[in-house]
Nucleic acid binder design. Sequence first.
DNA 1: ATTCTTCTTGACAAACTCGATAGGAAAGGT
DNA 2: ACCTTTCCTATCGAGTTTGTCAAGAAGAAT
Lengths: 139, 139
Amino acid sequence: MRISAKAEYACLAVIALAQRRLENRPVPIREIAEAQGIPETFLTQILLKLKGAGLVVSTRGSAGGYRLAQSPEEISLRDVLAVVDGCDLNARDTQGPAGPAAPLLAQVWDQIRASETRVLTKTSIAQLADRSNAHDWVI
Amino acid sequence: MRISAKAEYACLAVIALAQRRLENRPVPIREIAEAQGIPETFLTQILLKLKGAGLVVSTRGSAGGYRLAQSPEEISLRDVLAVVDGCDLNARDTQGPAGPAAPLLAQVWDQIRASETRVLTKTSIAQLADRSNAHDWVI
DNA sequence: ATTCTTCTTGACAAACTCGATAGGAAAGGT
DNA sequence: ACCTTTCCTATCGAGTTTGTCAAGAAGAAT
């Protein structure tokens, strides 16, 4: 029903990493934060989770930063959101009000989540990164 | 992305009212709360908002309670959710991070919201109430 | 009139989200 | 060796969500 700020930031960060992949060097947090307009301290925590999930890898030190662990074509929006939203994307809460009408509603929520998942799964990070580059090109 | 407890409670309450419409009498909050497993004091606030939006009407006094203001066929799930979620169902936040890739994501979020709205608009309270009655009938 | 039921209203508390702050650890440059 | 850069971790605070609690107002039944 509602897209959290954390989720959006995570997606933007991964897209930014995909766009700078050709430079073949780690991208510092600050650079991503400034480019995408994300609070730097919050992005720190998000990238840490993405690293824990194996989506990105980090390098420490003077020329350190983050880079993608996989190719952008293999990463879907759903993969990113599954990390930050705690994997409860399509695992519905089995602890509903348990009233007689609750299962009916749950059925509708499932239907909504299914169409949501369909869109997220078919949208890869590579698609978004390319589209964004194309947009910059026009300007 | 996520369905709030308040939203689910509101839908359950309206469905419950639809099911007891033939009895032609106001249904007290307590009765709805117990039947659907909703915290009674919280349901109080939700019904107040639904009344403010003109979806239900209330009668005070000894034989008082709530009843639907319209026929269940005219009420869609979206109508109910629009009330409790503060009308920001399809009005996307124009205050995004404003980074270069943000519009691309906003486009995807819009796509998701659109398919969401499609499901919610086509699902009427009457459909859910009937389905629930049929289910009880089988048992 | 009194009492009982029910809605109405406002204040309050626990949990989560969004972000800031501060200090530490690892690695590279000099 | 030293110092800078960067990641890493923990904690704290404002705001929202999710409820709870208690006192009040309005109407029906007796």
